[in-house]
Design a binder for these strands. Structure first.
Lengths: 116, 116
DNA sequence: CACGGCCATCGAAGTCTGTCGATATACTAC
DNA sequence: GTAGTATATCGACAGACTTCGATGGCCGTG
């Protein structure tokens, strides 16, 4: 349910004076990306494309223990950047479609891919 | 030395497997943006365009004391996102040209403004 | 040169983050 | 049902980040 619109987020940074609430949302988004391990996760998911990646794969990639990997994935999920699909006892992760592009556009990269 | 070229930074997030060093540089960049006050600073500098803004202006905008404002400005400067120009006893700040767009492009917003 | 305003840096205090072992939950296989 | 595997969550700890008062350096004015 919820039907949360992934990253509906935020006033574009280049707009008029940033309201406090908008600043908070943007902060949350950038915080999610402001960590070497989470960046590697996103990079891996980008490389994987349609394919989903499971938690155990990230343990090897990052050299972190399983609880820590879950912690990072949770942050990315809360920020709306990745999505989880449970299959059996495994959990597979993919990038939230368009999430990264939307972040890019917030920074002033203009229309960009937004062929729309 | 160093002669760091503002934000020459980093492998694009969408490229091949992110090296540790590249992940660190990206992390530094996003960390600089991952704070509500620094976002407001950037937003204000975007609005100011060519005009430079002095430290005391940010004190009012952010509701923070002067040392704290200097702290945030230093972080943004270290990340290559803003530049400082001293005029008399005042310090004026501007956005580093193109820095934000470059960040946006790292996120996969493709050619975009890169008319080049 | 003495004074006052602007800014950077230092040091301390409080809070937030990242990490992991231990534990709980959910599913598979036998 | 029992055993085993894959994730999520909890609790604790170390380290990093944010904030601010106090201090020091610079510059302009009188």
């Amino acid at each position: 349910m919820t039907a949360l619109p992934t990253v509906r987020c935020c006033a574009p940074l280049a707009g008029d004076t940033l309201a406090d609430g908008d600043a908070l949302e943007l902060e949350k988004l950038f915080k999610a990306l402001a960590d070497r391990h989470r960046l590697k996760i996103v990079n891996r998911l980008l490389a994987a494309g349609e394919d989903a990646v499971c938690v155990c794969d990230f343990e090897d990639l990052l050299g972190l223990k399983q609880p820590t990997v879950s912690y990072h994935l949770k942050l990315l999920r809360d920020a709306g950047l990745v999505e989880r699909e449970k299959r059996g006892s495994y959990a597979y992760f993919t990038l939230a479609p368009g999430a990264l592009q939307r972040v890019g556009e917030l920074l002033g990269a203009p229309g960009a891919a937004a062929s729309r």
